[in-house]
């Protein structure tokens, strides 16, 4: 039994709300000139950045229109930004039209991601990004 439709939409909605609140906090801190708060447990424990460290800063840069800087900081910021922009509207559209296109898309993506041909390049990408993060000293 995969995740039920209702649960998936609930989790995604909560994640989006949390994401936007986090982005708002990040933006207001960024504007006041202080360094952004770091909450990553891996970085706090080991002092080594994790693969997705810096994605908050990358999204903040994206909101300011600095696309190249964001890409250089952490390419995963783009993925996060696209998901954050798409999902609220998609959930809303599904609720209004009483369809489950997002749920079906989610399941299809999950199936697709499990194929070794897709999974291995993505894992390699994350590892390379991780090494890059460590050398950048995020």
């Amino acid at each position: 039994m995969p995740l039920s439709r209702r649960n998936l939409y609930r989790i995604l909605f909560m994640a989006c709300v949390a994401g936007y609140i986090w982005l708002y906090i990040g933006l207001s801190i960024h504007q006041s000139g202080i360094k952004t708060v770091e909450v990553c447990p891996i970085k706090h424990l080991t002092n080594i950045p994790c693969p997705s460290c810096g994605s908050t800063r990358a999204v903040i840069l994206l909101t300011k229109g600095e696309f190249v800087k964001a890409l250089l900081l952490n390419p995963l910021g783009y993925v996060v930004a696209v998901i954050m922009m798409l999902t609220p509207f998609w959930i809303l559209a599904d609720l209004v039209t009483q369809k489950e296109t997002l749920y079906k898309c989610y399941q299809k993506t999950e199936m697709h991601l499990r194929k070794p041909g897709v999974a291995i390049p993505l894992i390699l990408f994350v590892i390379v990004n991780w090494i890059w993060n460590i050398t950048k000293g995020l």
């Binding site: 994640a15 909450v39 447990p41 693969p51 997705s52 994605s55 989610y106």
Partner: peptide, 21 residues
């Protein structure tokens, strides 16, 4: 355990800012 979608979510957000982890 096969929850690939949730796994990607956790990976992209440092384990949900550590809370989800």
């Amino acid at each position: 355990i096969g929850d690939t979608g949730l796994g990607v979510g956790k990976l992209l957000t440092c384990g949900g800012l550590g809370i989800w982890a």
